[in-house]
């Protein structure tokens, strides 16, 4: 087991290395860098000044040279300075992490809480009206473009009914404290979380249903029924526990998707999170932040799969590495 984990971690570093080469290469290949973006239209800027700024930002080096110096710094834990914020990238990520984490974390909890019971109900009554209804609603959720769904929700709840704020994270000029502040946050996060949960729950629910169906037709479930166990025990103790194993891996794989999905949702609702900053960074060519953010997601993906693989072995005693 230990040997397996060490091997996986080492492989993860190799993969991260490959990801960073690809990302850096693509990001630097874009014609028109940060310097030309901010100096565009400014006639007072001479070519010499531009050149000096490029040197300052480290954009005067070629792609290979630039990558090597980025890699050298990154290995020491220094991901450079964000062009827009003029602060170390690690610091920028830290200070904008909270809204993204809240959005992703709360949405994921809701998704799990909805997907597991409804998935089980649907599986128990396969091909019934209940099953069709649950599956149809769940798949409808994943078939909606998130920006479209978000706009419709805003039209109904913010513009139409006026129940919830249209965008932002706090009501300006109110200076709420304590409980009121929390309620204010909750009101602002309600719609983004709904968008996340509705557009994301279907995948997990379908997975729960498929696995539950598989388990329900297994011999040991028939045995449990034959023993005369009450239905809740058959489902809860014998069937559900065995569906839990694949669900664990699925949940591990969902985490990075939540972070990259945040780019769109945060952009629509103008929440000041990592995703929104990433959007700004793309438009202005802030390469250090982009590299930092993308590498963060890549690392999360690898950690997610690794942790779920290990959990797999923990939950299922039959799996041995």
């Amino acid at each position: 087991m230990k040997k397996y984990i060490i091997k996986r971690v080492l492989i993860s570093f190799v993969v991260l290395f490959g990801v960073s080469i690809l990302l850096y290469g693509i990001a630097r290949a874009v014609p028109g860098d940060y310097v030309s973006n901010i100096t565009a239209g400014n006639q007072n800027v001479t070519p010499e000044m531009e050149q000096r700024m490029r040197e300052l930002y480290g954009l005067d080096k070629g792609i290979v040279e630039g990558y090597l110096s980025w890699l050298g710094d990154a290995l020491h834990g220094d991901f450079g300075t964000s062009f827009i914020y003029q602060k170390p990238v690690v610091e920028v990520i830290k200070s904008y992490m909270a809204p993204t984490l809240a959005l992703a974390g709360i949405s994921m909890i809701f998704e799990i809480l909805l997907a597991i019971p409804f998935g089980i109900i649907a599986a128990r009554k396969q091909y019934s009206l209940t099953d069709y209804t649950i599956v149809a609603i769940a798949i409808m959720g994943i078939s909606l473009p998130s920006f479209f769904f978000a706009s419709v929700l805003r039209r109904v709840f913010s513009i139409g009914l006026g129940w919830l704020p249209i965008s932002g994270m706090v009501t300006a000029r109110m200076n709420y404290q304590g409980w009121d502040l929390f309620v204010d946050y909750a009101r602002h996060f309600a719609l983004p979380i709904i968008v996340f949960v509705i557009t994301g729950v279907g995948g997990l629910l379908r997975y729960v249903r498929t696995n539950m169906l598989e388990v329900l037709s297994a011999d040991y479930v028939r045995t449990a029924r034959a023993k005369g166990l009450p239905e809740y025990k058959v489902i809860g103790k014998h069937a559900f526990r065995n569906t839990l194993i694949p669900i664990v891996t699925m949940v591990g794989g969902m985490i990075p998707g939540l972070f990259s999905g945040a780019v769109i949702t945060e952009g629509i609702f103008s929440l000041e999170g990592l995703g929104n900053v990433a959007l700004k960074a793309v438009y202005s060519g802030d390469i250090p932040y982009l590299m930092g953010f993308n590498m963060f997601i890549a690392a999360l993906t690898l950690i997610g799969t690794l942790v779920s693989d290990i959990l797999y072995a923990v939950v299922d005693p039959r799996v041995r590495y």
């Binding site: 014609p31 438009y283 993308n294 890549a298 993906t301």
Partner: peptide, 26 residues
């Protein structure tokens, strides 16, 4: 398989945004 993992780790939305400015630039 390492290549597969590299592609799995690429964040899709930011990458498409960068690529699009690449198209625009050229």
């Amino acid at each position: 398989m390492r290549l597969v993992e590299v592609f799995y780790c690429l964040p899709f939305v930011p990458l498409m945004l960068i690529l699009s400015s690449l198209f625009l630039g050229y």
